[in-house]
């Protein structure tokens, strides 16, 4: 049987380093998939610059580890993703937009990252470093874990 859990980390300021623990259900046997998301606010004056960059922009770095039994099993440079509705609009622009850094995108449904992590304890430790350098933005980092029970 599969179960999904969501852990939310509130990021309060730029450059913040956060250590946190994710408590898993006691009967969880392994982590089979995960996904990390963060959508910080884009300040209006930054927006134009960010949207001219190709699709992604770094938000922070994340490490997940299982204490004692196994060290870091997953790390990611979390990216800011431009909203789907913007991509849709981009998609309807004429083809010659290729030259300006926009893409003729074939979108797809967001997928979880497949992973196989057997769990011996019911705790996952996380460490997150915010990498947004301009503005002071509060946002939520969400960690989705799919567990086998």
């Amino acid at each position: 049987m599969k179960k999904q859990i969501v852990h939310i980390v509130d990021v309060e300021r730029n450059g913040q380093k956060i250590q946190f623990q994710i408590k898993l259900p006691l009967n969880a046997e392994k982590i089979t998939a995960l996904k990390i998301t963060a959508i910080p606010q884009v300040r209006k004056d930054d927006r134009k610059q960010i949207e001219s960059l190709p699709i992604e922009n770094e938000v922070g770095w994340l490490w997940l580890r299982i204490p004692e039994k196994r060290d870091v099993f997953y790390s990611e440079s979390v990216k800011r993703i431009l909203p789907i509705y913007n991509l849709t609009i981009t998609n309807h622009k004429p083809l010659d937009d290729f030259d300006h850094g926009t893409f003729w995108t074939q979108g797809k449904i967001e997928e979880f990252f497949s992973i196989n992590v057997p769990i011996k304890t019911n705790i996952v430790e996380g460490f997150y470093i915010d990498r947004i350098t301009t503005g002071n933005q509060k946002y939520r980092l969400r960690i989705y874990l799919t567990l086998e029970i």
Binding site: K3, Q4, I5, V6, I8, K35, T37, I39, P83, I84, Y85, L87, T88, T90, N91, H92, T105, Q106, G107, I109, E110, R142, Y144
Partner: peptide
């Protein structure tokens, strides 16, 4: 589960 973002269940025209 609770707090599962809606955007993960959305799909655009693309």
């Amino acid at each position: 589960p609770e707090d599962f973002e809606s955007r993960l269940l959305m799909a655009g025209l693309n």
